[in-house]
Design a protein around this nucleic acid. Structure first.
Ligand SMILES: [Mn+2]
Ligand SMILES: [Mn+2]
Ligand SMILES: [Zn+2]
Ligand SMILES: [Zn+2]
Lengths: 142, 142
DNA sequence: GTTTTAATTGAGAATCATTCTCAATTAGAA
DNA sequence: TTCTAATTGAGAATGATTCTCAATTAAAAC
């Protein structure tokens, strides 16, 4: 049971990068947030909770966390990139309510299998995928 | 068999908007392009082929074409939005090669059905969806 | 056809997320 | 402790997209 902290440290070491206090703070904040977040949400939470870290550093760290498979970019909306932490969580896809913004996560093994089959057909070697279904949630469909 | 031109005209009329020469040119160019395109590609093709239309007008027209279901935003990459025309074409999803950029279109009825089932489970009323599988295409997997 | 008016256009400014620059700092190997 | 390449913060730069506004025009009403 390797921790996200160890995983990040190993990743950094493997790339000849340093484990800095700023990176530690960002990493920890990312795993305190249990919803989708963008760089600004992260920036404000860190400023409020710990110490000020520049936006530049946050923007520089997000790709490191993505490369090390600790977080994932889940969607782009209004020109902003949204992320979620994925370490310790199973893969899932999303239902997105276009009215209230609610996000529902789901997982369907058969869809995953069918995707594999399609990749085989096209001789395509998948690394990851995103399935987002937009529409109206229970409450918003009236 | 209504044409895309008629469909756009009807949409504009229904919204109290005008059918202008600029909108006609943009519409026609969009249906001459049979790949994914962004605003810049569209801008340059129009400048080269017909007459100069300002970027502002192109940016203002793309949402009209989207709302009228003539085109669809297929993905966002490098901060740019990519579209494809969908009028007259069946729904499909995409395999995206992360190395060479190749885009493969596919359609799988069973995946579509499973999505409907999931929406039912969550009492969710879908409007549209996007499934993008990233990875390495036949040529790039070596 | 003429009038009327709200919609549209182009040019450039503004916005805003993200990236870049660079001087000062620092992690971590030796 | 020393050494050096990596990192940081502040602010400038970038670049896609949106906005502003004066001049133009589609098309409804006459
Ligand atoms: Mn999620
Ligand atoms: Mn396509
Ligand atoms: Zn909702
Ligand atoms: Zn390829």
């Amino acid at each position: 049971m390797i921790s996200y902290l160890e995983k990040f440290k190993e990743y950094l070491k493997s790339k000849g990068l340093k484990f800095t206090p700023e990176r530690k703070i960002i990493l920890e904040e990312v795993f305190l947030i249990h919803t989708h977040f963008d760089s600004e949400i992260l920036y404000k939470k860190i400023c409020g909770r710990t110490k000020k870290i520049s936006r530049a550093t946050i923007y520089r760290t997000l790709p490191l966390l993505t490369d090390s498979e600790l977080i994932k970019e889940v969607l782009q909306q209004n020109g902003r990139a949204y992320y979620e932490h994925i370490f310790g969580h199973g893969h899932h896809d999303h239902l997105l309510c276009v009215k209230c913004g609610r996000v529902i996560e789901f997982y369907n093994k058969n869809i995953e299998k069918l995707q594999e089959r399609i990749c085989n057909e096209y001789d395509f070697s998948p690394t990851d995928h995103k399935l987002g279904i937009r529409g109206y949630c229970k409450k918003c469909k009236k």
